[in-house]
Protein backbone atom coordinates (compact mmCIF):
# COMPACT_ATOMS: atom_id res chain seq x y z
CA UNK A 1 0.00 0.00 0.00
CA UNK A 2 1.16 3.52 -0.79
CA UNK A 3 0.32 5.03 2.60
CA UNK A 4 2.25 8.21 1.90
CA UNK A 5 0.18 8.67 -1.23
CA UNK A 6 -3.11 8.21 0.59
CA UNK A 7 -1.99 10.62 3.29
CA UNK A 8 -0.88 13.16 0.68
CA UNK A 9 -4.30 13.15 -1.00
CA UNK A 10 -6.12 13.25 2.32
CA UNK A 11 -4.00 16.13 3.60
CA UNK A 12 -4.33 18.02 0.33
CA UNK A 13 -8.12 17.74 0.41
CA UNK A 14 -8.31 18.68 4.08
CA UNK A 15 -6.16 21.70 3.20
CA UNK A 16 -8.87 22.82 0.80
CA UNK A 17 -11.41 22.45 3.62
CA UNK A 18 -9.28 24.43 6.04
CA UNK A 19 -8.60 27.20 3.53
CA UNK A 20 -12.31 27.85 3.37
CA UNK A 21 -12.91 27.08 7.03
CA UNK A 22 -15.43 29.87 7.49
CA UNK A 23 -17.53 28.73 4.58
CA UNK A 24 -17.08 25.10 5.58
CA UNK A 25 -18.19 25.48 9.16
CA UNK A 26 -20.12 28.70 9.51
CA UNK A 27 -22.59 27.93 6.75
CA UNK A 28 -23.85 24.60 8.17
CA UNK A 29 -24.02 26.12 11.65
CA UNK A 30 -26.05 29.08 10.42
CA UNK A 31 -28.29 26.80 8.35
CA UNK A 32 -28.89 24.59 11.39
CA UNK A 33 -29.75 27.57 13.56
CA UNK A 34 -32.25 28.72 10.93
CA UNK A 35 -33.88 25.31 10.78
CA UNK A 36 -34.26 25.34 14.54
CA UNK A 37 -35.77 28.79 14.52
CA UNK A 38 -38.26 27.88 11.78
CA UNK A 39 -39.04 24.22 12.47
CA UNK A 40 -38.17 24.05 16.13
CA UNK A 41 -39.39 27.30 17.62
CA UNK A 42 -42.01 28.60 15.17
CA UNK A 43 -43.64 25.40 13.92
CA UNK A 44 -42.42 22.95 16.55
CA UNK A 45 -44.22 24.74 19.36
CA UNK A 46 -47.52 23.84 17.66
CA UNK A 47 -46.47 20.27 16.87
CA UNK A 48 -47.33 17.39 19.16
CA UNK A 49 -44.58 15.09 20.36
CA UNK A 50 -43.71 12.33 17.89
CA UNK A 51 -43.43 8.93 19.55
CA UNK A 52 -42.85 10.74 22.83
CA UNK A 53 -39.97 12.77 21.41
CA UNK A 54 -40.21 16.55 21.43
CA UNK A 55 -40.44 17.82 17.83
CA UNK A 56 -37.40 20.08 18.22
CA UNK A 57 -35.29 17.10 19.24
CA UNK A 58 -36.98 14.84 16.70
CA UNK A 59 -35.60 16.83 13.77
CA UNK A 60 -31.99 16.81 15.02
CA UNK A 61 -30.97 13.47 13.42
CA UNK A 62 -32.74 14.40 10.19
CA UNK A 63 -31.02 17.75 10.10
CA UNK A 64 -27.62 16.16 10.62
CA UNK A 65 -28.33 13.60 7.90
CA UNK A 66 -29.50 16.31 5.51
CA UNK A 67 -26.25 18.22 5.87
CA UNK A 68 -24.00 15.16 5.98
CA UNK A 69 -25.47 13.75 2.76
CA UNK A 70 -25.25 17.06 0.94
CA UNK A 71 -21.74 17.78 2.17
CA UNK A 72 -20.47 14.27 1.39
CA UNK A 73 -21.76 14.33 -2.17
CA UNK A 74 -20.58 17.89 -2.76
CA UNK A 75 -17.14 17.57 -1.19
CA UNK A 76 -16.26 14.29 -2.77
CA UNK A 77 -17.69 15.34 -6.11
CA UNK A 78 -15.76 18.58 -6.15
CA UNK A 79 -12.62 16.93 -4.79
CA UNK A 80 -12.18 14.68 -7.81
CA UNK A 81 -13.93 16.90 -10.37
CA UNK A 82 -11.71 19.92 -9.78
CA UNK A 83 -8.36 18.22 -10.58
CA UNK A 84 -10.04 16.77 -13.65
CA UNK A 85 -11.29 20.21 -14.62
CA UNK A 86 -7.98 22.05 -14.14
CA UNK A 87 -5.88 19.16 -15.41
CA UNK A 88 -3.88 18.34 -12.28
CA UNK A 89 -5.32 14.83 -12.35
CA UNK A 90 -2.40 13.81 -14.61
CA UNK A 91 -0.21 13.63 -11.53
CA UNK A 92 -2.49 11.26 -9.64
CA UNK A 93 -2.92 9.07 -12.73
CA UNK A 94 0.83 8.83 -13.32
CA UNK A 95 1.72 8.21 -9.66
CA UNK A 96 2.45 4.78 -8.18
CA UNK A 97 -0.89 4.76 -6.42
CA UNK A 98 -3.69 2.26 -6.99
CA UNK A 99 -7.33 3.08 -7.67
CA UNK A 100 -8.26 1.81 -4.24
CA UNK A 101 -5.70 4.11 -2.63
CA UNK A 102 -6.95 7.07 -4.66
CA UNK A 103 -10.50 6.35 -3.51
CA UNK A 104 -9.42 6.00 0.12
CA UNK A 105 -7.65 9.37 -0.09
CA UNK A 106 -10.41 11.38 -1.75
CA UNK A 107 -13.42 9.66 -0.24
CA UNK A 108 -11.74 9.48 3.16
CA UNK A 109 -11.12 13.23 3.14
CA UNK A 110 -14.66 14.04 2.00
CA UNK A 111 -16.14 11.72 4.63
CA UNK A 112 -13.92 13.23 7.32
CA UNK A 113 -15.17 16.69 6.45
CA UNK A 114 -18.83 15.75 6.50
CA UNK A 115 -18.46 13.82 9.76
CA UNK A 116 -16.85 16.88 11.32
CA UNK A 117 -19.68 19.06 10.07
CA UNK A 118 -22.24 16.53 11.32
CA UNK A 119 -20.69 16.63 14.77
CA UNK A 120 -20.61 20.44 14.70
CA UNK A 121 -24.34 20.48 13.92
CA UNK A 122 -24.95 18.03 16.74
CA UNK A 123 -23.15 20.33 19.15
CA UNK A 124 -24.97 23.39 17.75
CA UNK A 125 -28.35 21.75 18.22
CA UNK A 126 -27.59 21.23 21.90
CA UNK A 127 -27.90 25.00 22.26
CA UNK A 128 -31.47 24.85 20.99
CA UNK A 129 -33.02 21.65 22.26
CA UNK A 130 -32.46 19.14 25.01
CA UNK A 131 -31.97 15.50 24.18
CA UNK A 132 -29.74 12.58 24.98
CA UNK A 133 -28.38 9.90 22.67
CA UNK A 134 -29.48 6.36 23.50
CA UNK A 135 -26.90 4.49 21.40
CA UNK A 136 -23.91 6.84 20.96
CA UNK A 137 -21.60 4.20 19.45
CA UNK A 138 -24.15 3.14 16.87
CA UNK A 139 -24.89 6.80 16.21
CA UNK A 140 -21.22 7.29 15.29
CA UNK A 141 -21.25 4.11 13.23
CA UNK A 142 -24.25 5.38 11.24
CA UNK A 143 -22.53 8.72 10.77
CA UNK A 144 -19.35 7.07 9.47
CA UNK A 145 -21.17 4.67 7.16
CA UNK A 146 -23.37 7.39 5.74
CA UNK A 147 -20.52 9.82 5.22
CA UNK A 148 -18.41 7.21 3.50
CA UNK A 149 -21.10 5.81 1.24
CA UNK A 150 -22.39 9.19 0.12
CA UNK A 151 -18.84 10.41 -0.40
CA UNK A 152 -18.45 7.42 -2.71
CA UNK A 153 -21.56 8.58 -4.56
CA UNK A 154 -20.06 12.07 -4.81
CA UNK A 155 -16.80 10.62 -6.11
CA UNK A 156 -18.72 8.81 -8.85
CA UNK A 157 -20.56 12.00 -9.75
CA UNK A 158 -17.31 13.96 -9.85
CA UNK A 159 -15.85 11.51 -12.34
CA UNK A 160 -19.04 11.33 -14.38
CA UNK A 161 -19.62 15.10 -14.55
CA UNK A 162 -18.38 16.87 -17.66
CA UNK A 163 -19.11 20.34 -16.31
CA UNK A 164 -20.02 22.18 -13.13
CA UNK A 165 -23.70 22.14 -14.00
CA UNK A 166 -23.82 18.36 -14.07
CA UNK A 167 -21.80 18.29 -10.86
CA UNK A 168 -24.43 20.38 -9.07
CA UNK A 169 -27.46 18.87 -10.72
CA UNK A 170 -27.56 15.51 -8.96
CA UNK A 171 -27.19 16.84 -5.42
CA UNK A 172 -29.83 19.45 -6.16
CA UNK A 173 -32.35 17.35 -8.05
CA UNK A 174 -31.82 13.94 -6.46
CA UNK A 175 -30.13 14.05 -3.08
CA UNK A 176 -31.95 17.03 -1.55
CA UNK A 177 -35.48 15.84 -2.48
CA UNK A 178 -34.71 12.33 -1.25
CA UNK A 179 -33.55 13.68 2.09
CA UNK A 180 -36.55 15.98 2.49
CA UNK A 181 -38.94 13.19 1.53
CA UNK A 182 -37.02 10.65 3.61
CA UNK A 183 -38.60 11.65 6.89
CA UNK A 184 -35.99 14.14 8.03
CA UNK A 185 -38.57 16.45 9.47
CA UNK A 186 -41.49 14.09 10.06
CA UNK A 187 -42.28 10.48 10.80
CA UNK A 188 -43.64 8.65 7.77
CA UNK A 189 -46.42 7.37 10.01
CA UNK A 190 -47.82 10.91 9.59
CA UNK A 191 -48.32 10.26 5.86
CA UNK A 192 -51.35 8.62 4.18
CA UNK A 193 -50.79 4.85 3.66
CA UNK A 194 -50.07 5.22 -0.09
CA UNK A 195 -47.26 7.73 0.47
CA UNK A 196 -45.94 5.65 3.35
CA UNK A 197 -45.40 2.83 0.88
CA UNK A 198 -43.82 5.16 -1.68
CA UNK A 199 -41.50 6.45 1.01
CA UNK A 200 -40.27 2.92 1.65
CA UNK A 201 -38.65 3.04 -1.80
CA UNK A 202 -36.55 6.02 -0.74
CA UNK A 203 -33.13 4.79 0.39
CA UNK A 204 -32.53 7.87 2.49
CA UNK A 205 -35.52 6.98 4.67
CA UNK A 206 -33.59 3.98 5.99
CA UNK A 207 -30.59 6.14 6.85
CA UNK A 208 -32.58 8.80 8.65
CA UNK A 209 -34.68 6.22 10.42
CA UNK A 210 -31.67 4.24 11.60
CA UNK A 211 -29.82 7.35 12.63
CA UNK A 212 -32.87 8.57 14.60
CA UNK A 213 -33.16 5.17 16.24
CA UNK A 214 -29.61 5.55 17.55
CA UNK A 215 -30.72 8.82 19.17
CA UNK A 216 -34.13 7.99 20.58
CA UNK A 217 -34.58 4.25 20.23
CA UNK A 218 -37.60 4.67 17.94
CA UNK A 219 -37.65 4.25 14.19
CA UNK A 220 -39.86 4.20 11.09
CA UNK A 221 -38.29 0.99 9.81
CA UNK A 222 -36.46 -1.76 11.70
CA UNK A 223 -32.86 -0.83 12.41
CA UNK A 224 -31.66 -4.00 10.70
CA UNK A 225 -33.31 -2.81 7.52
CA UNK A 226 -31.50 0.51 7.92
CA UNK A 227 -28.15 -1.20 8.28
CA UNK A 228 -28.87 -3.50 5.35
CA UNK A 229 -29.85 -0.53 3.18
CA UNK A 230 -26.70 1.38 3.94
CA UNK A 231 -24.48 -1.62 3.20
CA UNK A 232 -26.27 -2.31 -0.07
CA UNK A 233 -25.89 1.31 -1.06
CA UNK A 234 -22.20 1.42 -0.15
CA UNK A 235 -21.63 -1.86 -1.98
CA UNK A 236 -23.34 -0.52 -5.08
CA UNK A 237 -21.17 2.61 -5.05
CA UNK A 238 -18.02 0.55 -4.54
CA UNK A 239 -18.99 -1.61 -7.48
CA UNK A 240 -19.41 1.42 -9.72
CA UNK A 241 -16.09 2.88 -8.55
CA UNK A 242 -14.39 -0.43 -9.28
CA UNK A 243 -15.89 -0.41 -12.78
CA UNK A 244 -14.77 3.19 -13.35
CA UNK A 245 -11.16 2.38 -12.61
CA UNK A 246 -11.20 -0.89 -14.49
CA UNK A 247 -12.46 0.76 -17.66
CA UNK A 248 -10.78 4.14 -17.14
CA UNK A 249 -14.23 5.72 -17.62
CA UNK A 250 -13.75 9.48 -18.19
CA UNK A 251 -10.33 9.26 -16.56
CA UNK A 252 -8.05 7.53 -19.02
CA UNK A 253 -8.22 7.15 -22.75
Amino acid sequence: MNWYGIAAIWRFEMGRFLRSILQSIVSPVVATALYFVVFGAAIGSRMPEIESVDYGAFIVPGLIMLTVLQQSVQNAGFGIYFPKFIGTIYEVLSAPISSLEIVIGYVGAAATKSMLIGLIILVTSLFFVEFSIVHPVLMLAFLVLTSVSFSLLGFILGIWARNFEQLNLVPLLVVTPLVFLGGSFYSISMLPPFWQNVSLLNPVLYLVSGFRWSFFGTADVPVVASLAAIFVFAGLCLGIVWWIFRTGFRLKS
Binding site: Y4, A8, R19, I86, G87, P96, I97
Partner: peptide, 27 residues
Protein backbone atom coordinates in the same frame (compact mmCIF):
# COMPACT_ATOMS: atom_id res chain seq x y z
CA UNK B 1 6.39 13.86 -15.71
CA UNK B 2 6.24 17.54 -16.56
CA UNK B 3 3.19 18.03 -18.75
CA UNK B 4 2.82 20.50 -21.54
CA UNK B 5 -0.11 22.39 -20.05
CA UNK B 6 0.54 24.34 -16.88
CA UNK B 7 -1.88 22.57 -14.56
CA UNK B 8 -1.61 23.63 -10.94
CA UNK B 9 -4.02 23.78 -8.05
CA UNK B 10 -4.41 27.57 -7.92
CA UNK B 11 -4.97 28.04 -4.19
CA UNK B 12 -2.26 25.77 -2.87
CA UNK B 13 1.12 26.99 -1.62
CA UNK B 14 4.17 26.20 -3.72
CA UNK B 15 5.90 24.15 -1.03
CA UNK B 16 2.72 22.20 -0.30
CA UNK B 17 2.28 21.19 -3.93
CA UNK B 18 5.81 19.78 -3.84
CA UNK B 19 5.12 17.89 -0.62
CA UNK B 20 1.94 16.55 -2.17
CA UNK B 21 3.82 15.25 -5.21
CA UNK B 22 6.43 13.60 -3.04
CA UNK B 23 3.83 11.88 -0.89
CA UNK B 24 1.78 10.83 -3.88
CA UNK B 25 4.80 8.98 -5.24
CA UNK B 26 5.15 7.10 -1.98
CA UNK B 27 8.10 9.01 -0.54
Amino acid sequence: LVPQEINLEPFELVKNTLRFSRGLFGK
